[in-house]
Computed example of a mutant assay.
Amino acid sequence: MSTGIVYGVGLGPGDPELMSVRADRLLRTAKHVAFFRKAGRSGQARRIVEGLLPDDAIEFAMEYPVTTEIPLDDPAYNKTLSSFYAECTDHLRRIAETGEDIVVLCEGDPFFFGSFMHLYTRLKDRLTVEVVPAITGMSGAWTATGQPVTWGDDILTVLMGTLPEATLREAMTRSDALVVMKIGRHIEKVKSALKAAGKFDAAWLIEYASMPQQNVQKLSDAGEKVTPYFSIIVVHGQGRRP
Rank of each mutant, 00 (worst) to 15 (best):
M1D: 06
M1S: 02
V6E: 10
G8L: 15
L11K: 05
D15A: 08
P16Q: 04
L18H: 13
S20T: 15
R22F: 10
L26D: 01
A30C: 00
A30D: 03
V33G: 00
A34V: 03
F36H: 07
K38Q: 08
K38C: 03
R41Y: 09
S42H: 09
S42V: 06
I48M: 09
L53G: 04
D56V: 08
A61H: 03
A61I: 05
M62W: 09
P71C: 14
P71V: 15
P71H: 14
L72C: 07
L72G: 05
A76T: 11
Y77H: 10
S82D: 14
C88S: 09
H91N: 05
L92D: 11
A96N: 06
E97G: 00
E97K: 07
D101L: 11
C106M: 10
F111E: 07
F116P: 00
H118I: 02
Y120R: 01
Y120M: 04
R122C: 08
V131W: 07
V132E: 06
P133R: 04
S139G: 11
G140H: 10
W142M: 14
L159P: 00
P164Q: 12
A166W: 02
T167S: 10
T167H: 09
L168R: 12
A171G: 06
L178V: 01
K182V: 00
I183V: 07
R185W: 05
H186Q: 03
I187Y: 09
V190S: 09
K191D: 12
A197Y: 02
D201Y: 10
L205R: 12
I206G: 05
M211L: 10
D221Q: 14
A222V: 12
G223H: 13
K225Q: 15
T227F: 15
F230M: 08
F230R: 02
S231R: 02
I232K: 04
